[in-house]
Design a protein around this nucleic acid. Structure first.
Lengths: 156, 156
DNA sequence: TATTGTTATACTCTATAACTATA
DNA sequence: TATAGTTATAGAGTATAACAATA
């Protein structure tokens, strides 16, 4: 791992989660640095991207798509709204809900940020071939889906 | 992704980092739940595992192995020490440094926790074959190593 | 009753600067 | 001067409970 510390195969065996934590940490820190000049963070960019691709969706559904709690999405949306990137309006069909859509400024910033994020992604996966990238995506999806399969969850 | 939200391939294209975040989140929450009855967390287990495998190592090297800052390791080690799992002593060769080793109780708890963590890991990678697992490990390592290669870092 | 958006709160993880004691 | 351990602090991310408005 680092610092000349010997890590046996036996120890390494159990470190899938920790390897993932470290890899994600690299990605998060690096991507946030790339997005900072645009006034975005990883989470705000992700929210904006999904809203752009799904105009009119509700905060509840967006939270689900982002795998975060509704409560934690509120300030993220307020942040985007305060910057004039996002418009929140009442849903026509359900007065409890809101309808989210990107403003012209939000759409423009999204396209600009998307270039930076794509360039960043290219660096992250630069050393992988197509099969490896496919495996990575599949593995990540499979792990995510364990949450939705109670039979394989917390049973060991 | 979730909640019936349409995510186009074009949007998905930039989400390696966010997929990883969500996958790691599943792993972290799940593993912490599994370790809680043993009085451990993911990070404390990882620290204990590396100490068991590398008796006498210094906190500085452990922090490097765990990819966390020395400052953030202090309380983790104090926590393990307070629970009688770990012993901190002065290094014989460098009086600034400490020498870390697991106590008998620490070793016993490690072996117990390791079983739980291995079982957990098995569930996480249950749906992957050997090649996919190899690809996943390789991909995670490659991403981690980007931090140590300034030439490919923050240049886009 | 249940759901939507919201507020408030607490806990963890992370990053940084500064201190002390040693080297 | 540089390094090891430490303290303190600030910022994100996350989880939970509770509330008003609406269904």
């Amino acid at each position: 791992m680092g610092g000349g510390v010997k890590v046996t195969d036996e120890n390494l065996r159990v470190y899938i989660g920790y390897n993932m934590k470290r890899a994600f940490n690299v990605i998060q820190a690096d991507l946030n640095t790339a997005l900072k000049p645009l006034g975005l963070r990883m989470i705000t960019f992700s929210a904006l991207a999904i809203i752009v691709g799904n105009p009119g969706l509700r905060p509840s559904d967006l939270a689900s798509a982002l795998s975060i709690e509704r409560a934690n999405l509120v300030m993220i949306l307020s942040e985007l709204e305060d910057e004039g990137l996002l418009s929140r309006s009442r849903s026509a069909t359900d007065r409890r809900a809101q309808s989210l859509s990107a403003t012209a400024a939000g759409l423009a910033l999204y396209h600009k940020a998307r270039k930076a994020v794509c360039a960043h992604d290219d660096r992250m996966i630069a050393a992988m071939d197509a099969d490896e990238l496919k495996s990575l995506r599949k593995a990540l999806q499979q792990i995510e889906e364990l949450t939705r399969d109670p039979a394989q969850h917390h049973t060991g």
